[in-house]
Amino acid sequence: MELVIDRLTKQFKNKIAVDRISLTLHEGVYGLLGPNGSGKTTLMRMICGVLKPTSGEVKFNGIDVSREEFRDALGYLPQDFGYYPEFTAYDFLLYLASLKGINKSRAKEKATELLELVSLSDVAKKKIRTFSGGMKQRLGIAQALLNNPKLLVLDEPTAGLDPKERVRFRNLISRLGKDRIVLLSTHIVSDVEYIASVILMMKNGQIIHKGRLEEIIDVIEGKVFECSVDSRTAEHLIANYPIINIREESDKTFLRLVADKTPCETAVAVPAVLEDLYMYYFNKEVKKCE
């Protein structure tokens, strides 16, 4: 099983949203991490054939993205997607099943099974307009799984879910990644940290890092420091280093920051986590802009 993305580019007027991305993905969970506007959603929409690339191609097991066979193997949860408010959850899944070419009896079976999986069985016959944001998101996840896809693309799948549901879905996605390609994007760094076997960091339309968590973090290993300092030193550090965490204590300020060398006398090097790397890259970007 192989998803090949070859020099994929999308240009909107003067802005290049996705810039010649080339990737090869195999079975496993891939976490796409990046700030707003980095091109994650554009990349995912092109992978799913929803958006036509300016150049480049996407192939799944040698099948081009424009082919029906490609879409037959695909499950997609868009970031912002709507529903037919007058449809019930059950009807909605049956409709999506018919769009995915699943026969009626199998569709009924699968819809019941997935509503159970996403804990919506008791509201299956209720109109979607009565659903909360979290319930709609769960229904969105259910529809993505209807055709038992070999390629699952999830754009912000845990947005709007409560912490308990988030954990449930993280586990579910982990299991799904065993025998298929799962590509998910999120702002929630911990989601990626827990479930992604490979992390893709995206910035300005390009993949700037790709690798396992340990490999990626290695870039800033030994560069993450914690310290408690007076307000004057704190101001100096905040102005000059990417800050990951600030906490006001009784007479001092606690800081967690990224620096190439010890930023102050009291600073202690600590093990890096993914969030440190995220803040390191994307805070730097913010500072440059400023």
Partner: peptide
Amino acid sequence: YTNGMDGLIFSSKYGKNKV
């Protein structure tokens, strides 16, 4: 498009033909 269903339709098997 206004319902936000375009993504789901275009990515589905029959989204660019039968539907």
